[in-house]
Write a protein that binds this DNA or RNA. Sequence first.
DNA 1: TCGATTTAGTAAAACGGTTTAGTAAAAATA
DNA 2: TATTTTTACTAAACCGTTTTACTAAATCGA
Lengths: 332, 332
Amino acid sequence: MKKKSIKDIAQELGYSKTTVSFVLNNKGDEKNISKKTQEKILAYVREVNYQPNQIAKSLKKGKTNTIGYLVPDISNPFYAKIGRLIEDLLADKGYHLIIGSTDETQEKEDLLLNMFVNRQVDGLILASSFENLGMLNTLTSQRFPMVFFDREHPDFLGNYILVENKKAMKNAVQKVIQQGAKKIGLLSITPNVYSLKLRIDGYREALSDSNIHIEDRLIRIVDNNNLKESTKAQLQYLMEEQVDAVVFTNNQITAQAIWAMNIFHKEKIENVKFVSFDNLDLFDYSKPKVTSVAQPIEKIANYTVDILEEVMNEKERISKRIVLEPKLIERL
Amino acid sequence: MKKKSIKDIAQELGYSKTTVSFVLNNKGDEKNISKKTQEKILAYVREVNYQPNQIAKSLKKGKTNTIGYLVPDISNPFYAKIGRLIEDLLADKGYHLIIGSTDETQEKEDLLLNMFVNRQVDGLILASSFENLGMLNTLTSQRFPMVFFDREHPDFLGNYILVENKKAMKNAVQKVIQQGAKKIGLLSITPNVYSLKLRIDGYREALSDSNIHIEDRLIRIVDNNNLKESTKAQLQYLMEEQVDAVVFTNNQITAQAIWAMNIFHKEKIENVKFVSFDNLDLFDYSKPKVTSVAQPIEKIANYTVDILEEVMNEKERISKRIVLEPKLIERL
DNA sequence: TCGATTTAGTAAAACGGTTTAGTAAAAATA
DNA sequence: TATTTTTACTAAACCGTTTTACTAAATCGA
């Protein structure tokens, strides 16, 4: 039994497609369809459980009620949680989420971006790697509704929901310095991402403000494609260097490092302090102690959706930049 | 500047829509379009960066290349990880994922199911709560391509990718019994979900096989809407009951309970053993020790996608049931 | 009672592609 | 040279909606 279309309904009831469509869209009164007819159509529609084809609707209306959610990795708890919040907020407004993970590569990002646009998503929410601005500039010039979060690029003007990366990181690192840390290492994934670079800058500023010499060899980059092994190896290096604190630019590395510390460097676990960007519940009790910068994910989700809605409704171009205050959670 | 359509391209080049469409779909040779024309069209298309409207394509072809991914909560690491794996596998085949979180409620599930179907997804991957089979039965009778994972229902015949819930849980619980645990509590979210019930059954069987009296008051249900507080409260109860082991039916509760133990019951932490369904990295080092049943998520993702593809291609109805062996990770 | 208005609907175009069923001209064959 | 085949292309229908522009009949107002 094939799915019924408006045409079928109309034929079976002896009305025109137009009439049926009007009734289904609650325009019956406005369009002078008699009460009797309206009821007849609605009853029948209910009886046969007619379901409108959204694709056809989208084609005609030029609106899909779909939003693209493009992040480095949807299974990263940070992006997963924000994704979930956004999903719920958008669902209330009748939108749904189509997802894409970029693995921080421009290739995948461009591929997905193209895919989203071809699928006529009504808007995009992105944590872009900003490796190459080409595609994003094109979309901007077409006034494609986009809101960026978590990541930024100094040469790209768009709608941003961010936190004060540099300042927050600096603050956090200063705390462990105040506690006596002198030799402080840092682990980060690709520093080509500007927001991560800012976090590293925050670390640098904290050290130099306290007259601690910055040793570049203590700034280690882990391989994003092999996070577990690579974090283990780089942490090993820092442990051999006898650092008394390690700073991490995101929560995934921190979680991996906590794991590695507990498995391979148990003896040093009380003598090392961690500093993490992004919080995780487990930091509340895990060793080493982790001082973390907690991003306000509910607020991020709320603002992102709000601004996206604004952008989709406005005809003029707007570029808002909202910088939220992250919360410093000291565990010393 | 509005987006160009095939019609525009055709007009600007002096060909018909048909010709342009043939060339764009690599049917130029087959359809006897001259090399010269093909090159001209392709060059122009590249020049103006023409992007086909997938919605129009989908409408005509009756295929959207979109798969719905319906789970209790996309931000649950288990579903997020499997989602990511599935995303990648499907991307290779030209499909993309649209997501929905049900919060284990039938209302949301039905709403999302309807939404997915109206949006003409080509198939569905679901961890259903199976509270009510109505909608699922309807879809089955329409031969809508669906693959179920993680959750099952005894009265529903469909394609399943599962693990041996009862047996695996029984096994795991037996390990802690062998280690001397005598009073064993259990924490679960809604036991209306059959797969969770099976896990609880496994716990029951392990106890009765070892002649341990099953005390129903030691089986506590936590409120899914308030996981953190509820887990804390129920754990508190079990601690007051002086249990020497606690069994959890999924990883989210286990993680919350570890948190609560570390914050509120530190003194008992060495004297209690945990048993968790689903593994987490942090179980490798966290206290209390956690013996866990690790689901083979790569295999689950692979099979799910494989079977879904089969179902989408076959015309006859197939109902496969694949039961995978989970890995028991003993940490005693 | 006659023209104007309202009521209750409909036909057809449009959205942007794909596909079927063609056609006219050129080339090949007899 | 006449017929057939091949080449190169196109008109129009179609997918399932929405929407514009229309009409015929009924009702209203003076």
